[in-house]
């Protein structure tokens, strides 16, 4: 039961119930679709990057998915605001490390900040794709300003 409580921490359940930054961003300059054909999860990520400062001004997402994918998307949007594109990529790399690290290794939780909440995902390899969908879609959105469909399959 401990593993389960770690996966479904209060933070995850809260973001699932009340996702932050949920909706569309009509004036965004980066946008992508993500799809996990295995479970049917769909997500759209909208990012607005200020061209002068290079900072992410606003991020929104919408879609349907499991608690893990929804909470992951929601937490991701809260972390991205005010970051540069380079910092967003670094965050993506850190996130990937958190969800895929060998469960025997002991990452320094203090350094992970809010990403630490995703540590529980490692115990459930089948759910890594759920947690990753929003993040892959975000990277794809940053790379293409045009609409692209990406998949975690």
């Amino acid at each position: 039961m401990n593993e389960l409580q770690e996966l479904y921490q209060q933070v995850i359940l809260d973001h699932n119930k009340n996702p932050r930054n949920f909706g569309e961003l009509p004036q965004c300059n980066h946008h992508a679709h993500g799809h996990n054909p295995l479970c049917g999860d769909q997500i759209e990520v909208f990012i607005s990057v200020d061209e002068k400062s290079g900072l992410i001004e606003d991020v929104k997402f919408k879609g349907a998915g499991c608690a893990i994918s929804k909470a992951s998307a929601s937490i991701m949007t809260t972390l991205l605001k005010g970051k540069t594109i380079k910092e967003a990529r670094k965050l993506f790399d850190d996130f990937r490390e958190v969800v895929t690290l060998d469960s025997n290794s002991n990452p320094d939780v203090m350094n992970l900040g809010k990403l630490a909440v995703f540590c529980g995902v490692r115990e459930f390899p089948a759910r890594v794709k759920c947690a990753s969908l929003a993040w892959h879609t975000m990277i794809n959105a940053l790379e293409n300003s045009d609409v692209e469909q990406i998949s975690t399959e």
Binding site: E3, L4, L7, Y8, C39, C66, A67, I68, K70, R127
Partner: peptide, 13 residues
């Protein structure tokens, strides 16, 4: 309000 994948993981435990 509960996605099947979350159900599947929790039943598995």
């Amino acid at each position: 309000g509960i996605h099947p994948h979350d159900i599947g993981t929790m039943l598995d435990v």
